[in-house]
Nucleic acid binder design. Structure first.
Lengths: 176, 176
DNA sequence: GCGACAAATGAACCTCGGTTAATTACGGAC
DNA sequence: GTCCGTAATTAACCGAGGTTCATTTGTCGC
């Protein structure tokens, strides 16, 4: 566990989650960083037409927060919802940022966190820009081998960026 | 100009660029951060089948570098090429990271940079995941009104994620 | 002006995902 | 076991983008 994660756990406030429960919703103002102690969450956008697109699945050990909400105090651009029951730890990001101004170690822990975040987004951008739905699905299965047992096909489809029907077709294509 | 940008300009090494010239190519190991003083660059992926996808256009004032190359010293995941002649300033990221370990101000400048980077990627992820090519094209024109005069239709298409022919069709649809 | 090359558009056909709706498979509650 | 509700699959049709190639437009060098 990184220094940053330890910090969050140490100074944060625990919150138990039931399946389906929201940590925050798109449009909320919530500038906490969340550490996933146990369970599985999903971060997702709701479009104007009601369609849902999943940014990422967040298993144990993940750290998450809406970047613009954390940094600028804007409204969250996505929703965060528990898929299983579990426990998250919340820590106000502003406190971290403030404390970092006088604490080199903390500042460097923040740097490490933001670097990891940046790398993750860079990879996701590549996947979305350059890979087909089929490739993205394959990568999802590789990266999180247990995902098929933990979430519905509809959620996997929303992550890959297609409808559940299309994902079903993709699975059939991949099988042979 | 942010503290971080000033730092790069102050301590970096200038490099003039001709149109078409590469700053680095996919697969290179180049852990410099680049500040675009003048000109316009594109950051793009080349897929196995030779197709090109543009991550972002980088006009004057932009900061860029391959996150995994900067942080982990891995090979660059994309290429960086000048579209116009111009000048960039290069600064080894490792030096910054090292110096940040003993300099709170520098560390916080780095935090600000990484935060901005994270926000930008978060927005792009949303666009790629939730918007249609048509919407993405409209946003591009909004965000960079002069882009149509500065780059080819092929490059705009590679940014939006479609073929030049498809972009042509999209333009026709949007006109009426 | 002309000629040559690149860029953009247009047309014809194909593929794949979206849409809608029906069908099948699964998982408790009883 | 049956019943019921949900999830997953399948099918049929549509539309948008990909592919290929031809045509037009634009832009230089001269």
């Amino acid at each position: 566990m990184s220094r940053f994660q330890e910090l969050v756990v140490e100074h944060g406030r625990e919150k138990a989650l039931d399946p389906g429960e929201h940590v925050f919703s798109q449009g909320d103002s919530d500038s906490n960083v969340y550490f996933v102690k146990t369970g599985l969450l999903k971060a997702y956008y709701i479009r104007a037409d009601g369609k849902e697109h999943i940014k990422s699945f967040l298993p144990e050990g993940s750290i998450i927060g809406s970047m613009v909400a954390l940094v600028d105090g804007d409204a969250c651009t996505f929703s965060l919802q528990a898929l299983e029951d579990g426990v998250v730890v919340a820590l106000p990001y502003a406190k971290l940022e403030l404390a970092a101004q006088n604490d080199v170690d903390l500042a460097n822990a923040l740097i490490a966190f933001l670097s990891t975040y940046g790398k993750r987004k860079e990879r996701r951008e590549y996947e979305l820009l350059s890979l087909s739905p089929e490739d993205r699905f394959a990568i999802l299965l590789e990266t999180m081998p247990d995902i098929a047992d933990r979430v519905s096909q509809a959620d996997m489809a929303a992550y890959v960026g297609v409808t559940p029907q299309a994902l079903s077709r993709i699975k059939r294509r991949m099988a042979k």
